[in-house]
Amino acid sequence: AEIMKKTDFDKVASEYTKIGTISTTGEMSPLDAREDLIKKADEKGADVVVLTSGQTENKIHGTADIYKKK
């Protein structure tokens, strides 16, 4: 799966169907969080990951919607 910015995804959204939401939390780098989200998306058969939230304090927390091409 590839990560797309919401603004970029909005241009092609009609080509995809939302298949779920994924999240990651833990003591990790932003890059590790990104890789974890991609891994989870791949496991669910998603083609595209669109980040919906991200937070960093002591731990990273990120959520994303996942989509499959129609």
Rank of each mutant, 00 (worst) to 15 (best):
A13M: 07
T52A: 09
N58E: 13
E2T: 15
K44S: 07
K59S: 14
L51M: 12
L31N: 12
L51V: 07
E43P: 00
L37N: 01
V50M: 02
I22G: 00
K59L: 14
D8E: 10
D32R: 10
K11C: 09
S14N: 11
A46T: 00
S53A: 10
K5F: 14
K11G: 04
I60W: 14
H61L: 13
M28I: 06
M4P: 01
K70T: 08
T56W: 14
K6Q: 13
E35Y: 10
Y67I: 00
D10F: 06
L51H: 03
D36N: 08
T52P: 08
K59R: 10
I66M: 06
F9Q: 00
T7C: 13
E35H: 13
G26E: 12
G54R: 08
I60C: 12
I60Y: 12
I60N: 10
P30G: 11
K40G: 01
D42K: 13
V50T: 02
A13N: 05
R34C: 14
R34P: 03
P30R: 08
I3A: 03
K70S: 06
L37K: 00
P30L: 13
G26T: 13
A46E: 02
T52L: 10
G26Y: 12
I22H: 00
K44T: 04
A1Q: 02
S29V: 05
L51T: 03
V12E: 03
E57S: 10
I22Q: 01
I38W: 04
T21F: 07
I19K: 01
H61P: 09
D65I: 08
D47A: 05
A46P: 00
E43K: 08
I66Q: 01
T21I: 07
L31F: 10
S23C: 15
M28R: 07
D42M: 15
A64E: 03
D32M: 12
E57W: 09
K39T: 06
G62V: 15
A64Q: 04
S53G: 12
A13T: 04
P30A: 13
T56Y: 10
T24F: 13
P30D: 14
D32N: 08
K44Q: 13
T63C: 09
G26W: 09
K5A: 12
A33Q: 09
I38G: 02
A41N: 00
D32H: 09
V48N: 02
T56D: 14
K18G: 03
E15R: 11
K44N: 07
D42C: 14
V50P: 01
N58S: 12
D65Y: 06
I22P: 01
E27N: 13
T24D: 03
K11E: 06
I3H: 02
T7F: 09
V12P: 01
M4H: 01
I38T: 03
K44G: 04
N58D: 14
V50N: 00
V12Y: 05
I22K: 01
F9P: 01
I19P: 04
I3N: 01
L31Y: 10
K18E: 02
K40H: 05
I3P: 03
K40D: 02
A64N: 02
R34A: 09
I38C: 07
T7E: 15
K6W: 10
K44R: 14
K70I: 11
E43D: 07
K69F: 06
A33F: 10
P30S: 14
T17M: 11
D32I: 06
L51P: 04
K40F: 04
D10H: 06
D42V: 14
G26C: 14
Y16Q: 00
K40S: 05
S14T: 10
G62A: 15
L31W: 11
V12K: 04
A41E: 01
I19A: 02
G26R: 09
F9T: 02
K6I: 07
V12L: 06
M28Q: 08
T17Q: 06
K5Q: 11
I38Q: 06
E2N: 10
A64S: 03
S14A: 11
L51I: 14
T56A: 11
A41G: 04
I3S: 02
L37G: 00
K11T: 05
A33R: 09
K11D: 05
T21M: 07
T25A: 12
L51K: 00
T52Y: 08
G20Y: 03
E27C: 15
K44F: 14
I3Y: 07
D10I: 09
K39H: 07
A33D: 03
D47F: 03
T24Q: 05
S14D: 10
G45I: 02
K68H: 04
P30N: 12
I22N: 00
E2D: 06
S29Q: 06
L51S: 02
E43F: 07
P30M: 12
S23A: 10
E43Y: 07
D8Y: 06
K69E: 03
K5T: 15
K68M: 06
T21A: 06
E57N: 10
K70D: 04
M4A: 01
K44M: 15
A33S: 07
K18T: 04
T21G: 03
V12A: 03
T7H: 11
D10L: 10
S14I: 07
D32A: 13
